[in-house]
Amino acid sequence: MINGTHLVPRGAEAHPAISFDTRNVPVNDRIDYWEERCAERVVGLHCTSMSESGLEARFEYCDFGSIKMIDIIGNQHVIERSPSLLRRFEKDSVFLTFLRKGTAFVNRAQSCTVLGEGDVVIYDTNKPYMHGFPAQMRHVIYEIPGIDFRKRFPRWELNEAVRFDALVNPTRIVSRALREVVETDLALVETPAQRQSHEERLWNVLETAHAFSNGRARSAYHTAVRARVSQHIEVHLHDPELCPSGISREMGMSLRQLNRLFEGDANTLASLILTRRLQKCHADLARPGPFPKSVSETAFNWGFRNLSHFSKRFRKEFGVTPSALAEIASR
């Protein structure tokens, strides 16, 4: 039997969850059915199962916009994304996976990563891999667009599957943070504002994971302070006075100490603030509506003081002017 809760449908503007279950088809057809449905919604793969009862698996897929969530419950099975499947079913995504139940392994780049309950693993879909579950399992996958991931983390190659242990300090911070996001997504009906916050929390989890992966997070304390700084930035993006010196005073540390927390990042702290503001403006201007959004109002709402400077940086960042994007969104 497959046990577990179903995704609660989201708010009126959200896409409803799409679900399929192999138990609804004859035993001999279950593997083909699973492969076909997965290829349609997530990724092309080959599946095998040694269970005498056949593959018993349930899949629920929810589209949050740029990020997708897949909740899978099943019995013993192995999936493989071979070089031939890479060519047949192209997919440029990064999978952020949380193992809710059971054990698993990921075979990638001639190395095997073993996962326990609560562990987090990150890998991309552009390279061959095998993912297996020896017994009853449940995991949640967040599908991150590859282009967005590389823009945030241009030097994070993901040549191997990256694992974060749920039981060992300090990396269990990643597991705890992602668990909170998962539990929220599986339980709450969301408004559009909550869905936007949801994506921000996922990016914060990835920022923390990136810091550990690149050796910049030296301790649980160091990671917690980085998280506080990131949260402060998100909350105060509307404030035109938001700047590194002000953040350092708020955090009770010197500007030098603050900058050291973010050493090695693709962006300096100041450019991070600018990037997040631009991304917020882009999200607002791109939101569909009957009339074009006000460019000046949007810019000022997210802390920009100089409209000309905003327009130049926006076009450089996204390859389109703010007014053109607003016009497209209103059609």
Rank of each mutant, 00 (worst) to 15 (best):
R100Q: 15
N204P: 03
T223W: 06
S175H: 14
F153I: 00
T184P: 06
S254Q: 10
L261Y: 15
P292W: 01
E263W: 11
A270G: 04
S213Y: 10
E297Q: 05
R260C: 12
R100F: 09
E143Y: 03
I2C: 04
R152W: 09
R277F: 00
R41S: 01
L86F: 05
V8R: 13
W156H: 09
I79E: 14
A12Q: 10
R172W: 13
D63N: 13
E56C: 15
E56P: 11
A283K: 10
K91Y: 02
I31K: 02
G54E: 12
S254W: 08
K280P: 03
L158S: 06
N267R: 13
A187G: 09
A187T: 14
F314C: 06
A135D: 15
N75S: 14
S82C: 11
F318K: 01
S219V: 09
V94H: 02
L325Y: 01
L86D: 07
N107E: 14
V225A: 06
V94D: 04
K312H: 13
G289K: 08
A12I: 08
K316V: 02
M137L: 06
V205L: 11
G303V: 04
E60F: 14
T184G: 09
H238K: 05
G74R: 08
A227R: 12
E143R: 03
T22Y: 10
H232P: 08
T184Q: 11
R138M: 07
R249G: 06
K312P: 05
F59W: 14
V229N: 06
E35V: 05
L255Q: 11
P26N: 04
R260Y: 15
A266G: 07
V43I: 11
E143F: 03
C112Y: 00
N214D: 01
L285R: 04
D185V: 07
R152C: 11
I2G: 07
F291I: 10
L7W: 13
T208A: 08
I247E: 12
V78E: 15
T208N: 02
G65A: 02
W302K: 03
E234L: 12
N24H: 14
Y123G: 02
C112E: 10
F105E: 07
K293H: 13
E40G: 11
R108S: 12
V8Y: 07
V8Q: 03
D32L: 03
E157Y: 09
P170Y: 07
H77G: 11
T103M: 05
N301T: 12
H232Y: 15
H232V: 00
I73T: 13
G102F: 00
F300D: 00
S311A: 07
F291E: 13
C62T: 13
F300G: 01
P154A: 01
H77W: 12
S51V: 12
L186D: 13
E35G: 09
C281V: 00
